[in-house]
Design a protein around this nucleic acid. Structure first.
Lengths: 227, 227, 227, 227
DNA sequence: AATGAATGAGTCTTCATTCAT
DNA sequence: GATGAATGAAGACTCATTCAT
């Protein structure tokens, strides 16, 4: 072994420096969160702390040194998910391009995120669907959802003004779009391979915004059952 | 004196008739299933038998007279949900009207069901999302899903032939449509009132099938981020 | 149908006479006890009232009209078993014949009973082995056991006086004999066919009473490990 | 302020060494088995895990860290009991001495074991008498019983050849001897003090093997009821 | 900083017993 | 006299959390 190089930090007998401890703490914390994210996404709150510890390759006891409870871990995971989403969203309205273009970008970005990290979204749905979710977690997610909806709505209204987006109640369009993303996102969890292969683009989703000359041109079709 | 021995008491009524018992059994069974459907939809398998019994207004013990286990109740609920769905679907292809009309009807019917009985669908998603779901339940649902996809796909292909339905990979369209319904269905669980009020129609959903002249007319827009 | 003969008690519309009721009551009671004896012998107190009712071909409710509790049924069964045993025993000392002959008869009778009705004895052992058995049941059995032991002991002492029975502490001989019967009786429950076929006689058991010239003639053998 | 987040505390001891854990595990395991042996012997499978845990002075939860189920504990206990028995038995045939002497030793050893550790045998009987006993446990015991019977039988046959053992069907003698031991063993559970005091020796039991000149010398006695 | 042994409250399930008819 | 639906109190087992080292 080449002794010309020494690695100061690996002295072995020296007491750990505070920075080293700091670093270790951060790494362990991240490790636990990563493990937790995986098992929570798959099993929801039914995942056990044993699952989490195993996935993170730490002891159960250690998990409790870093987080006060199973719910606390959940809380952090949700917060991370929310943060990662909000950041991108808020930049979109300030971007250049027509409203329709920005809308397209927003949706594309949203889908990208869901396709890449379906577990994160799975987690969010789990939380929302589970009525035992504590209110502060619920509110956390609610805030992000609202941000999302606000931005989307604004772009839609602007897009309708320029004619790029089809007429219709903007709130409904928002809901339908988000629901569609949610649904696809779940699909991505059930069949990750299929979705990754077949859904690189969002064109089909965006059709709900498309102005359709034909729609207005065929007023003779029998009401809501027609295309 | 010890009271271990008793003498048969005299007097009293006749035992219930068999029909009466039959009726009681059916009512209780239904009551338990109804209660179970509610709590399972809200809490998934995390719902306790205490929840179920309370929702059904019976004792926990009684629930076990009617069903062998929590999972058995689940199984019956899923079976019912699946059955109620399949019946309607299979009639659609044989109906009259253009493919597009039939497609519109199918979607309309599907949405109707989801809007009216969101718990049923919630239940199905819970089951599919929960990785501990037993394989036979999973297969049960899979069968229905397949039926649904087959019918939808067929109508889409026919619709594309007549020009009523937009071009595109039918499989993708199927997935997007179903995902959209799923997402809205969940939305309906979170905000039942809102959905009931704002979503009596399926027009927006159907837009994903709409042929759009404009799409082809504006090939100059920058790729996948445009509308 | 020949109307010349009438059966007064089967009039159908007439109220049941008190005697008829009485008879029915006795029959049902016996039926329940018979069923109970079977299942208790096999499963001990682990037998359920559902088992008992099924074996007796009555409803569970009815069993509770006749007996206050599961334990009460047990109590009666034990009492019956005890009674059936004591009766025979007490006649033996007054019989004619040498003490040895009477002893032989007593043992033979005891074995006969155990071979014919192993369930009864199984029941008794179950009761004694189960420490949750109530004290009054325990005492009931204790009384019979004592009677048995007293009679046996008396005959042994007399037999030793006449030289028909081997020397030795009569109490020990009593215990060994009864233990031997118990053991064989259990064997009879595990392998009823085998025992019925191979153990029609008690000669081997009685050997413990036999005076043995050889025993005293070979005082050179090394203590208790020799024959 | 909500306390969901905590910061890893500093300071503290090192984790237990692996040897320490190893020792703790072995001790606790033994403790649980000891407690279980006591309560199972007394109450059979009717003993509750609460009983077991209390007897072992551990929490119920801990018992499940060491054993997968109540039945698993039972299984281990039975296995231990069987093992402890078989070991001694198999050495006997190879010992020196006449067949009769070896037989005497075997019985003496067997009785010693039953007198010292009646719970172990109680346990085995409980298991065999309880019809719900799983087949693998039943087989486990069956194997030991067979070993025992084989050895005994062989010694009896040899003893009969040398004239040390009385004539008669060896199989019957085996059964009677084992039954007698069983019965006494149960007696030892009901009256441990009495048995410990009065039964230090097996001479009485061995009488069933003793050749008796008198038996053949008094053929005038009336059949099977005589001594 | 880390481990893993230990606890106890909570969940599913069974079953003796009661009640309505 | 008889039935069978209904109840509630245990009991086996799991798992979040704490404790000792």
């Amino acid at each position: 072994m080449n002794e010309l190089f020494i690695h100061p930090k690996e002295g072995g007998e020296l007491p750990r420096t505070e920075e080293a401890n700091q670093r270790i703490r951060e790494e362990q914390r991240a490790k636990i969160l990563d493990g937790a994210r995986k098992v929570f996404a798959r099993k929801g709150m039914a995942a056990t702390m044993a699952d989490v510890a195993a996935a993170a390759e730490v002891s159960q006891g250690l998990a409790y040194r870093y987080f006060a409870s199973k719910e606390a871990i959940f809380h952090v995971l949700v917060e991370q998910a929310v943060q990662s989403g909000i950041a991108g969203i808020q930049r979109v309205p300030k971007m250049q391009g027509t409203p329709g273009e920005r809308l397209g970008f927003l949706v594309s970005m949203a889908w990208e995120g869901r396709r890449e990290y379906p577990e994160i979204y799975q987690l969010l749905y789990q939380v929302l669907d589970d009525e035992t979710t504590s209110d502060d977690i619920r509110e956390l997610i609610g805030r992000q959802g609202q941000t999302y909806q606000d931005v989307l709505r604004q772009l839609i209204v602007e897009g309708q003004a320029t004619g790029e987006v089809a007429e219709g109640d903007p709130d409904k369009l928002v809901i339908v779009l988000l629901s569609c993303l949610d649904g696809l996102s779940r699909q991505a969890l059930r069949e990750p391979e299929w979705v990754k292969k077949h859904f690189p683009e969002t064109e089909i989703i965006l059709r709900i915004f498309k102005p359709s000359s034909e729609y207005r041109e065929r007023p003779d079709l029998p009401g809501r059952f027609s295309l």
